[in-house]
């Protein structure tokens, strides 16, 4: 029985999850901070990649991250909401803003979609940058973490927080993998492959993309709420286009549309940033060079290229027309 694309993808995902959980437990506090950071970026990457399944690539996803962070931080710090409620509010904020922005954004696609999402994220950035409510450009400290002491877990401990973030990432990953085998997820795939034909057989492309955008917004906001908890700080920088660019790089390097690729890409990005920035002055230059190299060698990203290789191998071993499964 030949390994299928899906099985390989899922196996890699499980391996990464287990590896992350085990390694994280046996490292020091500093590395655990990196694990938490990577897991949060991975959640953000999943949000972008889920939307990409419908054929839409956003370049303003930092808007959702920023919105989630500010909704969580704002309510928890300024309104003294319990962090759990504030987190639910952040998720709801992601859905609602996704629906509102999506109403005009998902009518476009390609370069126009990139422009619209970028513009909206920049609007959010300039608002929080000036808003006295959140201390404008200076940002706002004192953002609490979720209180899970009732469950015997103090999230202010780096190890616990890293575990918590990795577990959330695993949950989001399972959720994403589940979504894509449902009729809704299959329809997103169909829309990516041929939106015109979906319309021609009676599918309302706009509605599906809007739903994907709102879902993606919720997950993006979740990553923002985690980010604010991780740094205990709200900064307008959370919503800059650099953040949108970083997550896009993580997804592309890992393999767009593969989910686990974006997770690996996130880990790689956080790790490389760390070792490069502590050793070189112009570290972004090196980072850029590395990513251009990867993109040239593996045009479909790390996991994407691996899956393509599997396809070719299966086709060689099995001369009959290859059985197909979705990426």
């Amino acid at each position: 029985m030949a390994m299928t694309r899906n099985n390989l993808r899922l196996s890699i995902g499980v391996a990464v999850a287990v590896l992350a959980l085990i390694t994280q437990l046996s490292t020091g506090a500093f590395a655990q901070e990196l694990f938490a950071e990577a897991a949060i970026l991975a959640v953000f990457a999943l949000s972008l990649d889920l939307l990409a399944r419908s054929g839409l690539v956003s370049f303003g996803h930092a808007g959702f991250l920023g919105l989630g962070a500010y909704t969580f931080g704002g309510l928890a710090v300024l309104q003294n909401w319990p962090p759990s409620l504030a987190m639910a509010a952040a998720l709801a904020g992601g859905i609602v803003s996704g629906l509102i922005i999506g109403c005009f954004a998902v009518r476009t696609s390609g370069a126009f979609f990139i422009m619209v999402t970028l513009a909206v994220a920049e609007m959010f950035f300039s608002w929080v940058f000036r808003s006295p409510l959140f201390n404008g450009a200076d940002g706002m400290g004192g953002v609490p973490r979720l209180d899970m002491r009732a469950m015997g877990l103090d999230l202010n401990n780096p190890k616990n927080f890293a575990t918590f973030c990795i577990l959330i990432c695993i949950c989001v990953w399972i959720f994403a993998e589940y979504i894509i085998v449902t009729p809704f997820g299959r329809t997103l795939d169909a829309i990516r492959q041929n939106a015109n034909r979906v319309s021609a057989v009676g599918g309302r492309v706009f509605s599906y993309r809007l739903a994907a955008f709102a879902l993606s917004g919720a997950i993006g906001a979740l990553s923002g709420a985690l980010k604010a908890q991780h740094t205990n700080f709200l900064s307008p920088d959370l919503a800059t286009w650099v953040v949108s660019g970083d997550v896009l790089i993580a997804v592309v390097i890992g393999g767009m549309g593969t989910f686990v690729g974006g997770i690996i890409g996130s880990g790689l990005l956080v790790y490389l940033k760390e070792i490069l920035s502590s050793n070189f002055g112009h570290w972004y230059l090196f980072l850029g060079g590395i990513f251009i190299g990867v993109a040239l060698i593996l045009p479909r990203g790390i996991v994407g290229s691996l899956l393509d290789w599997l396809d070719r191998r299966n086709a060689r071993n099995n001369p009959a027309p290859a059985r197909e499964e979705e990426a």
């Binding site: 449902t182 329809t187 492959q193 197909e324 979705e326």
Partner: peptide, 23 residues
């Protein structure tokens, strides 16, 4: 283009039968 024959037809049927929104 990336789907099998069966998945192509299933997709169209699912959309027509209002199954497609099920997540």
């Amino acid at each position: 283009a990336e789907m099998t024959v069966h998945d192509n037809i299933t997709m169209a049927c699912a959309i027509q039968d209002n199954v497609a929104p099920v997540f």
